[in-house]
Design a protein around this nucleic acid. Structure first.
Lengths: 152, 152
DNA sequence: CGTAAATCGTTCATATCGTGAATGATTTAC
DNA sequence: GTAAATCATTCACGATATGAACGATTTACG
């Protein structure tokens, strides 16, 4: 009976890949709508968040971490600098490198985004038990690990 | 002691919103990479998939279902028509309406995408027990429901 | 040493994607 | 039977991400 299960295979709608892709996209869009009033886009928040795990990092390292082109990271950093959320500091040991540093305002903005995320969670997770929420969270964490995403 | 829990709140990285947004985005990107050789983008697959639940539907209905502008749906349908995956058929009862119908080739393409999704699942879910996978799937289904996404 | 190659940040041109406004054909309301 | 609404479509536009080119700096190595 080897291979008896999955003869037809999981239907497309039921795959984790399909559900993650569709649900993730609309969640990201909704998140984008809420942070727009703070002049932020999801990638800006991703950059701010990356700076909390790697307090100071070169722009190129950050670009690789986020999986975006270096030229894009420049513009993200420019915008965050305009907002006063990050500062560029030349690495004295290697003057090519621009390290990004979170300012107090950057921390504040990040705290605001965290509150928005929690508020979004209340809507997304409505009707789920505590155990179900925990299972979803750890499941997402495991998938993130398989994708080499830098989560805690 | 009202409000004692969540004094600091769930950290941003641990929120479902943040994890869904980030993980979902990279999963969607990876999926996009795999279907590219078939001349498809995620939205094309979404349209094909929508046609399996509503076998024939007007383009405007489909646009609303997918949450995209009607003008975009025209271009998605154009491309799928070029690929021979869908046919436009005028509704005889209301000749303004163009109904989209999946062709055999469309069904084939969708089956290919389903196989790609299952293959992606094997990577995303590596290391998760059967129970964990099931919990993740139902959790995603529940979130999809809270977002009014049309899943089974 | 000193020159060649690599690295980092930046700018720029370009491709792509999604939207909203305008248009034409058809249908519905009154 | 005329006016308003609906559907599909085209078009111009904004926004986003990329890769190529460039200047400044650093590293490798004859």
């Amino acid at each position: 009976m080897i291979g008896m299960s999955d003869v037809k295979g999981t239907p497309l709608f039921a795959t984790a890949a399909f559900r993650l892709g569709t649900v993730g996209t609309v969640v990201a869009d909704r998140f984008a709508g809420r942070i727009a009033e703070h002049d932020l886009k999801p990638k800006h928040v991703g950059l701010l968040a990356a700076l909390t795990t790697a307090p100071v990092a070169s722009q190129l390292d950050l670009a690789r971490l986020m999986g975006v082109a270096p030229s894009l990271l420049v513009r993200l950093a420019d915008h965050l600098e305009d907002l006063g959320a990050v500062e560029r500091v030349r690495d004295p040991g290697d003057r090519r490198r621009q390290a990004l540093r979170l300012t107090d305002r950057g921390h504040d903005l990040l705290a605001t985004c965290a509150e928005i995320s929690r508020s979004l969670d209340r809507e997304l997770l409505a009707g789920l038990s505590g155990a179900e929420r925990a299972a979803l969270r750890t499941g997402l964490g495991a998938v993130a690990g398989n994708l080499d995403l830098p989560f805690d």
